Every structure is written in structure tokens, then in C-alpha cells.
Computed example of a mutant assay.
Amino acid sequence: MSIISKFTVGSEEGISDLITIIDSSVYTMHKGLVPEEDLKTYIKNNIDPRKMINDLNDLSNQLIITYIDEKPAGYSILKSSSGHPALPEDKRATQISFVILPEFDSPEARESLWKKSRAAASFTDIIWMNIMNHDPLSTFLKESGFSVAADTTAGPFQLPSQILQFEIRRG
């Protein structure tokens, strides 16, 4: 099995791979919690390739896609200068999203995406994310050093979630 996590630009191919992962992950994360018709409507109305290209061409954003046997399996988007009220104000914060599709989820895939994401965020003080309570990656992230900063809600359907933070230690 070949696992590669690499920086991806807002090109047609990169956005196509990202949308493939997003569409699948939206269904997976909300299945049984949100009516399927609502999921289809959300994807149709909110997954906009042009907006994604514009977001990724913003120099403060970075996209990393993990490929397993050349298939898009997960992604991380880093947004610099993005804070949250639950985090210390005197620290530079970078928000990340961290997604691996269940059919590709493995310790090796998680490690590959996390190592690349962590390296990309080495300039910041705190990495943070808003992750749904039922997300299977939550345990991995906590084992990797993330701690809970706050309980909240996430996503388009405002499901229970936690703000997780990872403090960058410089030595």
C-alpha cells in the first residue's frame, strides 16, 4: 500500500480530489443523524469549486491531500491567522480541518496526514479544530497531543463537537 500526503494547489485536479473526499465525508459523518435529503441539498448548495479555488489561492490557506494507492483518501486544510474565543488571545493560532475517509482510515494514513499537517503549521503557536464528538479521528488527535479547549457545535447541522487545541512547543 502506497501512502503519500502532499501539498495540493487550488487546481482543477486538486479541487476535484478535495470535493470527492468532502462529499463522501459529509455523508459518512452525518449518516443517521441528518435526513439524507438535507445532506444532498447541503452538498448541492454549498460545495462550490470556484469558492474552494479562491479560498485555496489565499496565501494564508494550505491544502494537504493524502493519497492511498493514488486515490484521494483524506485532507487537511490549514487556515493561518484563524483564532477562536476559547483559545489564548496572545498566541498565533492556525485552524485545521482533518479528514480521512473511513474506507482508507488506518494508523499509517493518520500519521502521514498528521505529520505533514504538523510540519506545515510549525510557524504557529496553537493548532486548533472544531471536531464533531462522534468523529472517529477525535481519539487519535487526543492521543497525538490535542486537548479539549471547549464544548460547542460544528458543521452545517450544528452537531455536538469540541474545540481541540495543540500547543506547538519550541525547544
Rank of each mutant, 00 (worst) to 15 (best):
D58S: 11
K31A: 14
K44M: 02
K51P: 00
I47C: 11
N46Y: 10
E36M: 05
L59N: 13
M52I: 05
M52R: 11
N54Q: 12
G32D: 09
S60T: 15
G32N: 04
L63M: 13
Y75W: 09
P49N: 13
D69R: 10
L39D: 00
A93W: 01
G74N: 09
K79G: 00
S82P: 06
K44T: 11
H84K: 00
P35W: 04
K40F: 08
M29K: 13
I53C: 06
L56P: 08
L56R: 12
D55S: 14
P49W: 11
H84Q: 03
N61M: 08
K71Q: 13
L63N: 05
T41G: 01
Y67W: 14
D69S: 06
I47Q: 06
D55I: 12
I68A: 08
P35R: 01
I68C: 12
L39P: 03
S81P: 00
E70R: 14
N54A: 09
S82R: 15
S81A: 12
N57P: 11
P85D: 02
K31E: 14
N54P: 00
E36P: 01
E36F: 07
E37W: 13
G32A: 06
A93T: 09
D55M: 13
L87E: 01
K31Q: 14
A73G: 05
I68D: 01
N57W: 05
S80G: 08
N61H: 15
H30E: 06
Y42D: 04
K31L: 11
I65L: 02
I47H: 07
S76P: 02
L78I: 10
I47S: 10
S76H: 07
Y75F: 14
D90R: 12
K51C: 04
P72H: 08
D90E: 13
D58A: 09
S76Q: 03
S76R: 01
E89K: 06
G83V: 04
D48Y: 07
E89L: 13
K44N: 05
N57G: 08
N45V: 01
K44G: 02
T41E: 09
S60Q: 12
R92I: 07
N45G: 01
G83P: 01
M52D: 00
H84C: 00
L78T: 05
K31N: 15
R92C: 00
I65F: 02
V34L: 00
N61D: 03
K31T: 10
